[in-house]
């Protein structure tokens, strides 16, 4: 089965990522997965695909009009169809069309898979967001990251398998585990901060220094051993002794791993200094350091400092995104949430 078919036929799209998790009962995919980490950038407020990777010649033809199939009701009043003002050209051996907005990306386009088959059936931000994260508009299903951590597991017990970076470190549909066990829910970290101790709750001990803390932990563990000796072998008791050690180490490791300020200046300059850039760099750092297996980065919330740069850099000011920027589908084909 092609990826396209799979994604098309799954209810909302990203629910499909649960494939690995279901592989046991399904009989397994024909080829073994190679992915070890997933970084998912979710960029609300980013430029439209119509201006980047998805040329729509028909928009020229129907410019300014609202033909039947796209005459949709939207929250805000919208005009007719709007063709992209940017020029497209085919790049790479695959001949993928990329607009003039992205000269750097077009130079490496053969390393990128562009999927043009995504669509939404809800024109409102919040439900559509929930849809892309969980395959359901209701924010009640497991999120992409929960499925991935459920399906791929984690090699490293020291940090959560599924990390979500966002300004403010909010939860919501992007970290929900839904009907999956709660251990697969994402741990949100606030990437508006660059100091690890501000990003991770309780990371630093404010009372004891490193040695005093080690002595304290030794005392705890000595008592824990005594208790285990009296009680006998038990998964929880053993697991927690290990987990205490992991947490102790994590205090210092996370101070390093989560600290993007330790990246060389040249690298930081490449990324820039916005919170979004910091988040991207941190996601890369987490993967490279082999810490949490599937960190995930998602971008601004609308209204919270969305990246506006692309507007300023554009050859001309773009009008507000209207319904014409959305792929419209005749109603009967609108997929329903899976039953």
């Amino acid at each position: 089965m092609t990826r396209r078919q799979l994604f098309q036929q799954m209810c909302g799209g990203l629910a499909a990522i649960g494939l690995n998790a279901m592989a046991a009962s399904y009989g397994g995919p024909k080829t073994a997965g190679k992915a070890k980490h997933v970084i998912f950038l979710f960029l609300p407020g980013g430029p439209s695909h119509v201006d980047m990777f998805d040329p729509k010649p028909a928009l020229e033809k129907f410019a300014g009009q609202r033909p039947g199939s796209v005459d949709l009701r939207t929250e805000r009043q919208t005009g007719g169809l709007l063709p992209s003002p940017f020029k497209f050209q085919k790049y790479g051996r695959a001949g993928v069309e990329v607009s003039e907005l992205l000269p750097q990306i077009s130079s490496v386009i053969d390393d990128i898979c562009v999927m043009k088959s995504m669509y939404t059936f809800n024109p409102t931000h919040t439900p559509a967001r929930s849809l892309i994260h969980s395959g359901s508009i209701l924010a009640t299903r497991p999120s992409l990251g929960s499925w991935v951590s459920y399906g791929l597991g984690t090699e490293n017990q020291n940090l959560p398998a599924f990390v979500s970076l966002s300004p403010g470190g909010a939860g919501g549909p992007q970290v929900r585990s839904g009907f999956l066990p709660s251990e697969f829910q994402g741990t949100p970290f606030n990437d508006s901060e660059v100091e690890p101790e501000k990003m991770i709750a309780n990371l630093r001990n404010k009372v004891l220094d490193k040695d005093a803390q080690r002595r304290q932990l030794d005392a705890i563990q000595a008592l824990n051993s005594e208790f285990s000796n009296g009680f006998g072998a038990d998964d929880f008791l053993e697991g927690r002794i290990k987990s205490m050690e992991a947490a102790y180490r994590m205090q210092f490791e996370a101070m390093d791993v989560f600290d993007i300020r330790k990246e060389p200046d040249a690298i930081r300059a490449e990324y820039g200094t916005t919170p979004f850039a910091n988040g991207c760099l941190l996601a890369r750092r987490l993967v490279e350091k082999g810490r949490p297996l599937h960190p995930r980065q998602h971008g601004r919330r609308p209204g919270l400092g969305r990246p506006q740069g692309h507007r300023k850099e554009s050859p001309q000011t773009l009008p507000r995104h209207g319904p014409g920027r959305r792929r419209a589908h005749p109603r009967p084909q609108a997929p329903r949430p899976a039953g």
Binding site: Q157, S182, N205, Q216
Partner: peptide
């Protein structure tokens, strides 16, 4: 599902 995670232990210690 009752889990045991390092983040819980950070809560306990700090």
């Amino acid at each position: 599902d009752l889990t045991t995670t390092p983040l819980q232990q950070l809560f306990v210690m700090n």
